[in-house]
């Protein structure tokens, strides 16, 4: 999962560098969009496999048989995916800045915050949909079909938020970040409520 995500995000950096002509386009306008598209794609590639390796030998049942609350399995999957996502973002973001010559205005705190909130927004539903798609025949396809529309709000808020953070002079990202926080809260609560129902099939 880690290797796939890293390899994928680096490849996307290069591909975007070729796809967007730096001589024609003002890069700073499209930079947040490129950044978050890359993170979303790489995240989806990684997270879609979260439950896939539980399938061949039905290890998920093995986990369920262990004593303790089943919610722990979901939270563990979520945490792992989040940490992978964060690690990937932290390594890839400087590369993006370097390759796209994006000026850096020193807003460490708010950029870290939007990276973390965005990663959380992507992994929450990603983990749930991965649990669903692992058990279906065309699971990968269904995962992609459902992930994209569900992640549109994350994409909008993170891109606009990042844009406000990186622009010179810095804008106010808080309206977008609050929206993203609301999204994160709702889609953390819903899978936690619904996750138990996944077992009985």
């Amino acid at each position: 999962m880690w290797v796939t995500m890293m390899a994928f995000v680096i490849m996307i950096v290069f591909m975007f560098a070729f796809a967007v002509d730096a001589g024609q386009v003002r890069l700073s306008l499209v930079f947040p969009g490129i950044l978050w598209m890359a993170f979303l794609f790489a995240g989806m590639i990684g997270i879609s496999r979260t439950y896939a390796h539980e399938v061949p030998e039905d290890t998920l049942t093995g986990l369920i048989l262990a004593p303790g609350d089943r919610m722990a399995i979901f939270l563990a999957k979520l945490t792992t995916a989040f940490l992978f996502m964060m690690g990937m973002e932290l390594i890839a973001t400087p590369i993006f800045f370097a390759l796209f010559n994006e000026p850096w205005n020193g807003a460490w705190g708010s950029l870290l915050l939007v990276l973390a909130l965005g990663a959380l927004g992507i992994v929450e539903l990603g983990t749930l949909l991965s649990a669903i798609s692992a058990n279906l025949k065309s699971g990968e396809m269904i995962f992609t079909m459902l992930m994209f529309p569900f992640e549109i709000p994350v994409l909008i808020t993170t891109v606009e938020g990042t844009h406000a953070i990186l622009s010179q002079p810095a804008g106010n990202p808080w309206l977008w970040l609050h929206g993203l926080m609301a999204y994160d809260a709702i889609f953390l609560a819903l899978p936690l409520l619904l996750y138990d129902y996944l077992w009985e099939v």
Partner: peptide
């Protein structure tokens, strides 16, 4: 059963 359960979960999120 899978179809019904999964689609119910998706519908509620949607």
């Amino acid at each position: 059963e899978r179809r019904a359960t999964y689609s119910a979960i998706i519908a509620l999120i949607a």
